[in-house]
Design a protein around this nucleic acid. Structure first.
Lengths: 346, 346
DNA sequence: CCAAAAACTGGGAGCGCTCCCAGGAATGCG
DNA sequence: CGCATTCCTGGGAGCGCTCCCAGTTTTTGG
């Protein structure tokens, strides 16, 4: 067996020891040079960096995290039935935002879809296995068993939106859903509308519940009657379309509708168009999400309650870092403000 | 300092040594029992399992992968400009499918969005850092510098769709884009249509190019003239709508259109509706993707060329496993067949 | 010019695991 | 009953890294 060179040839991956040898310094010095901490002379640092580049060195993460007890990875868990997820542009935006925000702090995102019962076990096992330093969880459904299962975790967890069944003791970053709905409906009231319907989201989700209650409260405050004017959708396009036709059938006289998501609004618009209603003159429409690729692109462009996924994830990461810094930080509940983006549909 | 118990209390995480001690066996035996390999007596195995459960033991993955040289993770890289990605339901489906398929073989998916120039460096560094055992790459754009950069990787890579600028030497699983387009257009020809337009995808992507050429070839074979009947979209809803109105302006006499994606078809339908054309009697529409949450839900439901993301990812994972098994497997180019799903739009 | 401080270096220990190997216990068979 | 075979066990080495510490060199300043 003829083998050229020393260790690096063994399996193609040079180790820190190889770099050190090639640079003519010790492993310790090489480590200090590459992580630049501690005292290293400019000469040594230079030599080490050159050697590392020449050998194509990249540190073995497993070895590093074995001793540092840090993985440099954060999990983002999306707990939602499959079909929903595909349809929900807000979730897509969240993934993207998660990736960016975590990259900004030098962390890798590990995306986890948790849906079925067996997913739950696997998810918990994974998260508890030391693969990641922290977890961001989106589990909108109130009956979701995941949040309870996550209590046993030994790593920091931050929730995006209310965590099912865990009022206290967890870190949450949510949007002001009720406030946003009030904003939207108040705007419709001020514009002179009197028969303001709503297409609500599924009432097993806090966000949907809060948006519905915001609508109801604002109507009552304005002395308007909400009876017969609410219909529940499922946050999908077809769900929105169906809810809209139900509403039209029941209350053909409605003059405005507050829709709890952009996607459902897309469906509602389709129904309104084929029913020959003009927007906003016959029926004004205001929705919720203000998704960048949906709301402004519709016909007509939608007035929508603006919530920025990036902002939410940013706040979540901020909280996560705080918890990693101080393990028994007292639970933080942050409610982010929302605003109304005014467009042609109202 | 009063401290109860032994090591486990130190930082809350019991080690294999702790489990072994608690079970009254050696570390080696405990390891064998938990990974069930080698010889372990039923008695020992039982004791170890009980101890592990009681202590809430979960193995330290860093330590394990340090010695096994396996991480149990596979990266899925999506290289695409931000805006595109949000809009593209096929990509969402790919993420989901990737998660499922990888979970099935006991691997964790690490999702990576690579978009900007700096992403590229970070991505390569990460992939080469030993975080993952293999990579699945979706880089549809021909000018994308990523595939070239990935050549230096020391771990297996499999591409979904043609890899930019790398004809040979890489593993690819693609769909038969040209064949699918031919299927679609042939169907329109057989139904008696003669002025068959197309809304193509961006011509910097292989898939889009192949679909366009499939359309062209089929027309020529049928003795039809493709002149003035092709318009380029960008795979988005609004892009599809715009392309459709351009086509209508140029060729008001068109009687069918082959659209290169469901999303663009959604836009095209909108334009056709507001132009008062009836579907399929005035204009027949056939699209590409057959996305489960789009094609069947449209008005009318779309005839579409069916390609299953799950099938593609499955084949990619299969290939990946083969390469991990045999590092210098000769490059595999798999082309998956597609079929036509017939619905009301044609 | 010399002691103290600061700057720098290398070796050793050890993170928690798997794998190899030597040795002991149980079992088989002539 | 003796010996080979299978079964089972524990100890040791070592994966590649970081951190600690002791030792050496350089710089500082009275």
């Amino acid at each position: 067996m003829t083998r050229v060179g020393a260790r690096p040839e063994e399996d193609g991956r040079p180790t820190l020891e190889d770099v050190a040898a090639s640079a003519g310094v010790s492993r310790s010095t090489a480590s200090r040079a590459l992580n630049d901490d501690g005292y290293v002379s400019a000469r040594s640092r230079e030599k080490v960096q050159v050697a590392a580049r020449e050998l194509g060195y990249s540190p073995n993460q497993a070895a590093r995290s074995l001793v540092t007890r840090r993985t440099g990875a954060v999990a983002v868990v999306l707990s939602e039935p499959e079909a929903r997820l595909l349809d929900d542009p807000y979730r897509t935006a969240v993934m993207r935002a998660g990736y960016r925000e975590l990259a900004d702090i030098g962390c890798q995102m590990v995306l986890i879809f948790s849906d079925t019962r067996e997913d739950l076990d696997r998810t918990v096992r994974f998260l508890d296995g030391g693969h990641v330093d922290g977890v961001l969880v989106f589990a909108p459904h109130r009956t979701d068993p995941l949040p309870k299962a996550l209590r046993q975790l030994r790593i920091p967890v931050v929730y995006g939106g209310q965590a099912a069944g865990l009022k206290r003791g967890v870190h949450v970053v949510d949007f002001d859903n009720e406030g946003g709905a009030k904003l939207a409906v108040a705007h419709l009231v001020e514009s002179g509308h009197r028969r303001i319907a709503t297409i609500a989201g599924p009432q097993d989700q806090s966000a949907a519940i809060d948006r519905l209650s915001g609508w109801r409260k604002t109507l009552l405050d304005a002395g308007l009657d909400p009876a017969d004017l609410a219909e529940e959708g499922d946050f999908t396009l077809t769900g929105g379309a169906k809810a809209m036709s139900n509403l039209l059938a029941r209350r053909p006289d409605l003059d405005a509708v507050f829709v709890a998501s952009d996607m459902m609004a897309l469906g509602a618009l389709r129904t309104l168009h084929s029913a020959g209603r003009r927007i906003p003159s016959d029926v004004a429409v205001v929705s919720f999400d203000d998704n960048a690729t949906l709301a402004p692109e519709m016909d007509p462009p939608l007035t929508s309650v603006h919530q920025d996924p990036r902002e939410q994830v940013h706040a979540m990461v901020e909280t996560l870092l705080a918890v990693m810094d101080d393990r028994d930080l007292k639970p933080r509940q942050r409610i982010l403000p929302v605003s109304l983006t005014h467009r042609a549909s109202s």
